[in-house]
Design a protein around this nucleic acid. Structure first.
Lengths: 213, 213
DNA sequence: GTCTATAGGCTGATAGAC
DNA sequence: GTCTATCAGCCTATAGAC
């Protein structure tokens, strides 16, 4: 809610809105716990209702439908991803920063499998909705992307990027590889037989050697 | 069914078995069409029954449950993937062969989204079952993996592989990147903003530069 | 605002008739 | 072997009482 909307309301309406927001957050919190514990398929209105001590029907007062709750959950996921990038983002050297961001991405995905799955592997409709709805702005999704792009821009400016690449293309290649590592490990933990750590090291080194000159 | 089993049966039993196999194939064929058209979630016993002109209950005479059908569908997917690799596998130069296999993999995934999704993005339980159940043998899954591994072995033998890599690790890095490209495009077609072709070119070139020395 | 009740679906799987 | 009927559940979403 914008500041403009707030000042236009009376104090009572304002308090009501605050309570409403709190309730919405409670719903999303419960939804997160359900998804983390039992996956996206287990996210039903009944289970959310149970978790917050209300009937399923009440939830429709706060969210239009189940997809809207999943969308809110995804947005929270992007905020967490940006937070996971924060320590890496302070590193001065762009190549070290890029590598640290990459490692943070993979750690995020492997330690929050169900959140990651919801954000990037589950429902194209909802993922598209959240990414498009928040594109262009200073959204968490764009800030996460920027954390990968920005070190590559700096490397490009220093003439370190392979010369057939532009920073956005290099960022997409990087993202693809990181996503591939996380998502393949989430769906078939056994098969890429290389252990997680060695695979991450080899992937980061391959990207560093392959993207730079 | 093994040859040994066949010769131990009478001619009548043999014919019965052949009919049974034919029926099983019909079921899997119908299942494939449903998954291709409407996705894995639409794969229900009732819909399969409708498609083959039998009741849902009859299917349980041929498959233990729905997961067994999904597993059979995945195995067919691996066979198709190996077939998709066939033209590339004849190329003599190992680097050209590796690149052609990579392109064939991405084409397979992007042109059969629902099959690919079922094989690598959907249900860890079934994917694990099929990959483990067919590991070690001359299964389609292993042959698909071999198509990526083998050119890398040849490059390794010629001393062309980056020297901190072994062929299996390099194969896993390659697979991860290809899978990342396909799976990200399937879940959010819009966001990695680089067009498919340019992204594939950039990824293959990055892998070639990054894995080799 | 919250509830119960319910419409109107869907699912996998099985029992028992034929 | 195939069927119908059914069990035992699940779901989203809404109407209408309070």
């Amino acid at each position: 809610m914008s500041r403009g909307t707030l000042v236009a309301m009376g104090a009572a309406a304002e308090r009501r809105e605050r309570l409403r927001d709190e309730f919405r957050r409670e719903i999303v919190g419960a939804a997160r716990r359900i998804v983390v514990e039992d996956g996206y398929a287990a996210l039903t209105m009944r289970r959310i209702g149970e978790a917050i001590g209300y009937s399923a029907a009440s939830i429709y007062q706060y969210f239009a439908n189940r997809d809207a709750i999943a969308g809110a959950l995804m947005e929270e996921g992007f905020v967490e991803l940006v937070e996971a990038f924060a320590p890496a983002a302070t590193i001065a050297d762009p190549l070290s920063r890029l590598k640290a961001v990459g490692r943070a991405y993979v750690r995020f995905g492997l330690t929050r499998p169900e959140t990651y799955r919801l954000m990037f592997m589950e429902d194209p409709k909802i993922t598209a909705g959240v990414l498009e709805g928040s594109a262009g702005e200073n959204s968490a999704g764009m800030r996460a992307y920027a954390a990968i792009l920005e070190p590559l821009v700096q490397l490009f400016e220093r003439g370190r990027l392979r010369d057939d690449l532009t920073p956005p293309v290099a960022a997409d290649v990087m993202w693809i590889s990181l996503h591939g590592l996380v998502s393949l490990k989430l769906t078939c933990p056994k098969f890429p037989a290389t252990p997680d750590d060695a695979l991450l090291d080899a992937t980061m080194e391959t990207l560093a050697c392959g993207l730079l000159q």
